[in-house]
Design a protein around this nucleic acid. Structure first.
Lengths: 348, 348
DNA sequence: TTGTACGCGTTATCAA
DNA sequence: TTGATAACGCGTACAA
C-alpha cells in the first residue's frame, strides 16, 4: 500500500460527481439528494477514503481547531496542583463544543526545536500567568494576529484576562487573623519569579509573577512588615520546607502563617506539628484555593475559595468570543473567605 | 488593520527575490547569501511578516507537528495519578526535539463536535490503554494511515506497544506474600472496564482493560481464589473505599491485600488503620508503581517499581520511528520488586 | 441540486 | 546561490 492516498477528488470522480458535491456530502454544509449522498459514500468506502484531510481543511478554512495552552513548568509539577487540573478541565470543556482541543506548550523552550506559539498551527492561545521569556514571544504572536487570553497574568493592553480578586481576598484572610489578635505573622508565597527557586524574600528580589505579587500585597495591606518565605511552587513539600524554616528558631516563631495556597498551608501545618506546635492553639494557618487536600484531616483549612474550573471555563469562553469576532470579556472572579478550624485567637 | 496579512510571497516580491528563496531564508534549509538574507529579513520586518503560516506549512510538508494523546478520563482524574503525569512528561520530552507537541484528546466523545483522531491534524497518536469505543475509531485511523502507538494496551497487530511485565511483576509480589505464609488474600484492582464503576468483581463481569487484566492474572497465578474488589481508578480515595469494604466484616478479613497501584494501596492501608489493624502485623499490603506517595509515611510500601517516565519516552521514540519510516520497536519494560515495610509474615 | 473555477500559503524539485 | 513551477487537498463563491 505504497500508493497515494485517495483524495476527495478521487472519490468525486469515482462517484461521478463534482468535487464540491463530494465536499458538501462530507461537511453536511449544503443540500444534497439522498441518491447522490449514497453514491459518494459508496465510492468513498470503496476507495478507503475516510474523510477530508484535516491539514488541508485547516488551511482552507483558516482554522486548525487547536488552542495552545502555555504551561510554565513540566507537566508533572504543574498537574500535581489540583487547581491547575481543574482549570484545564474547565478550559477543555469550554472549547470542545467548538471543535477545538488543547495543545500543550512550554513557555521556556526547554528543548531545541520544540513547538512554540509561532510554529504551531494554533487558532488561539491561553497563557497561564505571563512571566519572563514569555512576554517576548507575545509580541510576535500578537503580530501574527493570534488571539490570546491570559489567566492570572498581564499580557498587555487588549489581551483579555481571567483574574481572581487575589489581593482583596488575601486581605480578607489577613484581616481575619488581625481580628483574632495576631500580630506576629509570616507569609509563605508561591513562586515569585522564573529566576528564584525559593527562600527568604528580601527587598532586592523582584516579584514578577502576578498571582504571587497580588496575594502578597493583600497580606501586606494588613501586615506590612511580616517576614516572607518564597517557595518554588504549590506543593505540600514546599510548604513543609518553608514551615520548617519558620519554626526552626523557637524564639522567632510566628503565631500565624498566611500561605498562598492550600497545599502550601498543608505543608506548613505539617511542619508545625512536627515542631510540636498545635494548630490552631499555638499557630494559626490560612490557605488559598479551597480545594480538598488529602492528608489534611482532621483540620478544615481557613482559606479563600476559588472556582478553578470556572476560571478555565471563562478562559475558554473568552477564546470562543475571540474566534467569533465578538468582543472578549475579561473576567474577575471573587474568592469568598471560608473560616475553618486552622485559625484561632492569638495566645499572647 | 482589516487588510490581508502579508504572505511570504509579498515578502519575496518586496525584497525582489523569488518566493522559494524567501522560504529558504525562513526555514534555513538551503544556502543563501548573506546579502539576500538580510534583504528578505528587512522586507519581512517592514511588512510585519513573522514567519510562515503553520497551517500552510503543515499542508505542504504533510506534517503538523502534533501528536494526539488519547486520554480516557477527564484531566483532573487522569493527572491525579503521578504515574500518568510522569508518563506524559516522558512522552512530551521525547517528541519535543522533533518539533512536535501533545494534543489532548478524549476517547469517549463527551461533547458533540469535540476533536477526534479523525478530525484533528495529527502526525501520530498515542493511546493510553485501548478499551471500548476507542477500538472502533482505530479502524478509521488506521485506514487514514495515522501512525499509532499504544501504551499498556492492545490495538491489534502491527501497532507497536509499550508494555510492562504486569503479570510477571504482580506474580512476584504475590509469591512474596505466599512465601510469608499468607493464604487469606484479597485483591484490589484498577478500573476493569469503561462500563463498570467499581465493586466486588463477579465472574460475569468482563475485564477489558489490559493492565488490570494482566496484573489480576499475575495475582491469581498464586491466589486463584482470592476475592477481588474493583475500583474506578487509581486514587487514595478509591483504595480507601475498597479497604473499608474489605475490613468491614471482622470475621472475613483478609490478612493480606494486593493492590494494583500504590495509591490504592495507600488507601487500603488507611482503611486498615481506621479499622484498628496494624500494618504489617495484622494486614500486609502490596502496591504497584513505586512512586513516592504523600501521606504514606512512616510506611515504605512493598511494591513493583515501574519507570513511568521511561514508558512515556519509549512511546515517544516509537512515534519518532514511525514518522521516520523506521520500524518502530515494541518495548517491554520490567518492574522490579521492592520490598518495603508493609508486608510481613502471616500471623495465623 | 449540481458543477466550475479558484485560491488558501507554503515548500520541494529542478533547472539555471 | 537563485528562480520558476507545480503541487499539497480542500471549501466556497457563483453560475448553471
Amino acid at each position: 500500500m505504497t500508493t497515494r492516498r485517495a483524495t476527495i477528488a478521487d472519490v468525486a470522480r469515482s462517484a461521478g460527481v463534482a468535487p464540491s458535491t463530494a465536499s458538501v456530502v462530507f461537511s453536511g454544509k449544503g443540500p444534497v439528494s439522498d441518491a447522490t449522498r449514497r453514491r459518494v459514500m459508496a465510492a468513498a468506502a470503496d476507495l478507503g477514503y475516510v474523510g477530508p484531510d484535516p491539514m488541508a481543511a485547516s488551511l482552507r478554512r483558516g482554522r486548525s481547531g487547536i488552542v495552545g495552552v502555555v504551561v510554565g513548568s513540566n507537566l508533572n509539577d504543574m498537574f500535581r496542583d489540583p487547581v491547575q487540573r481543574l482549570l484545564m478541565d474547565g478550559l477543555a470543556e469550554a472549547i470542545a463544543p467548538r471543535g477545538a482541543g488543547l495543545l500543550l506548550l512550554r513557555s521556556h523552550k526547554a528543548v531545541e526545536n520544540a513547538p512554540t506559539l509561532m510554529t504551531a498551527p494554533l487558532d488561539a492561545a491561553v497563557l497561564i500567568g505571563c512571566d519572563g521569556p514569555l512576554r517576548d514571544s507575545l509580541n510576535e504572536a500578537h503580530l501574527r494576529g493570534l488571539p490570546i487570553v491570559v489567566i492570572e497574568g498581564d499580557a498587555g493592553p487588549g489581551v483579555p484576562r481571567i483574574l481572581l480578586d487575589n489581593r482583596e481576598a488575601q486581605r480578607t484572610a489577613a484581616e481575619h487573623l488581625h481580628a483574632l489578635g495576631h500580630r506576629h505573622v509570616a507569609i509563605v508565597t508561591l513562586r515569585v519569579s522564573a529566576g528564584f527557586a525559593g527562600g527568604p524574600l528580601t527587598p532586592d528580589i523582584e516579584v514578577t509573577i502576578d498571582v504571587t505579587r497580588d496575594r502578597l500585597a493583600g497580606a501586606r495591606d494588613v501586615f506590612p512588615d511580616a517576614p516572607v518565605i518564597a517557595t518554588a511552587g504549590s506543593s505540600i513539600d514546599e510548604g513543609l520546607a518553608a514551615g520548617r524554616a519558620l519554626f526552626a528558631d523557637p524564639s522567632a516563631r510566628p503565631a500565624a502563617v498566611i500561605a498562598q495556597s492550600d497545599l502550601l498551608a498543608t505543608g506548613v501545618i505539617r511542619a508545625a506539628e512536627e515542631a510540636g506546635l498545635r494548630v490552631p492553639d499555638d499557630v494559626s494557618v490560612t490557605g488559598f484555593d479551597g480545594i480538598p487536600v488529602d492528608g489534611l484531616a482532621p483540620h478544615q483549612l481557613t482559606t479563600l475559595v476559588q472556582d478553578a474550573t470556572g476560571k478555565g471555563r471563562a478562559a475558554g469562553e473568552a477564546v470562543a468570543a475571540l474566534l467569533d469576532g465578538r468582543p472578549p470579556a475579561s473576567v474577575l472572579l471573587t474568592c469568598p473567605f471560608r473560616r475553618g478550624s486552622t485559625t484561632g485567637p492569638a495566645s499572647r
